[in-house]
Computed example of a mutant assay.
Amino acid sequence: MPTITVRFFAAARDAFGARETRLSAGTVDDLVDTLAEAADEQATTVLSRSSFLVNSVAATDRGAALSEGDTVDVLPPFAGG
């Protein structure tokens, strides 16, 4: 499986306690599963509500293959108005 960079924003950064990490994942769904395995309840909740960007493009097909060196952004819902 390819090694990718995962960047966390806002509540995801708080929940995972990091700005970014590197891990192996074949798809965004694989990535979510991998992150959820080691996550606490708060982080799992954030993941379930987040959207994802792959190389700055919305991941509309979370089953699409990731490639070595891709960057996936975890974007929780943002408050504001």
Score class of each variant (00 low, 15 high):
Phe16His: 09
Pro76Ile: 10
Leu53Tyr: 10
Phe8Cys: 01
Ala12Arg: 03
Asp33Gly: 02
Glu68Met: 01
Glu41Phe: 01
Arg19Gly: 12
Glu37Ile: 01
Leu47Glu: 11
Ile4Gly: 02
Ala38Asp: 10
Phe8Met: 07
Pro2Leu: 04
Thr5Tyr: 03
Thr3Leu: 05
Ala18Ser: 14
Val6Leu: 11
Gly63Ala: 14
Pro77Gln: 07
Val54Arg: 13
Leu35Pro: 02
Asp61Ala: 12
Ser67Cys: 03
Asp14Arg: 13
Ser24Gln: 15
Phe8Gly: 00
Ala15Asp: 09
Ala12Val: 10
Ala12Asn: 07
Asp40Pro: 03
Asp73Cys: 12
Ser50Leu: 15
Thr71Pro: 00
Thr34Gln: 12
Gln42Ala: 14
Val54Thr: 13
Arg62Val: 08
Pro76Ala: 14
Ala59Ile: 10
Phe52Glu: 06
Ser48His: 12
Phe78Glu: 07
Gly26Ala: 15
Ala58Phe: 15
Arg13Glu: 03
Thr27Phe: 09
Asp14Phe: 09
Leu31Phe: 04
Ala79Phe: 03
Ala64His: 01
Ala65Val: 06
Leu35Asn: 04
Leu35Ile: 01
Ala15Gln: 05
Ala25Trp: 09
Arg22Thr: 15
Ala43Arg: 07
Thr3Met: 09
Asp70Thr: 07
Arg22Gln: 15
Ala39Met: 05
Gly26Tyr: 04
Leu75Cys: 05
Gly17Gln: 00
Ala43Asn: 05
Glu37Ser: 08
Asp33Lys: 12
Ala38Gln: 14
Ser48Phe: 13
Asp33Thr: 12
Ala58Tyr: 12
Gly26Asn: 13
Gly63Asn: 10
Arg7Ser: 02
Arg62Gln: 08
Arg22Asp: 04
Arg62His: 13
Gly17Ser: 00
Asp61Gln: 06
Ala36Lys: 06
Asn55Trp: 07
Ala59Glu: 05
Ser50Trp: 15
Thr27Ser: 14
Ala25Cys: 09
Pro77Trp: 04
Ala59Tyr: 11
Phe16Ala: 00
Thr71Gly: 02
Asp30Trp: 06
Phe78Met: 11
Thr27Asp: 02
Ser51Met: 15
Val54Gly: 01
Arg62Trp: 14
Ala15Cys: 05
Asp33His: 10
Asn55Met: 04
Gly81Trp: 07
Ala39Arg: 03
Ser48Thr: 15
Thr60His: 07
Arg13Leu: 03
Ala36Tyr: 08
Thr3Lys: 13
Asn55Leu: 04
Gly81Asp: 12
Ser50Met: 13
Ser51Asn: 13
Ala59Met: 07
Ala10Glu: 06
Thr21Asn: 01
Thr21Arg: 14
Asp73Val: 03
Thr45Pro: 03
Val54Ser: 08
Thr34Ile: 01
Met1Lys: 07
Leu66Ala: 11
Arg13Asp: 01
Ala59His: 03
Ala15Glu: 02
Asp73Thr: 05
Ala58Pro: 04
Thr45Phe: 13
Ala12Met: 10
Leu66Tyr: 10
Glu20Thr: 09
Leu35Gly: 00
Thr44Gly: 15
Asp40Ser: 09
Arg22Gly: 09
Pro76Asn: 11
Arg19Glu: 13
Ala64Gln: 06
Thr27Leu: 07
Ser48Val: 15
Ala79Arg: 06
Leu47Met: 11
Val32Leu: 08
Thr3Phe: 02
Asp33Ser: 14
Gln42Met: 10
Glu20Asn: 08
Glu41Met: 02
Ala59Arg: 03
Val32Trp: 05
Leu53Glu: 01
Thr5Met: 12
Thr44Asp: 07
Glu68Gly: 02
Ala39His: 08
Asp70Cys: 09
Arg49Glu: 14
Ala36Thr: 13
Arg49Ile: 03
Glu20Phe: 10
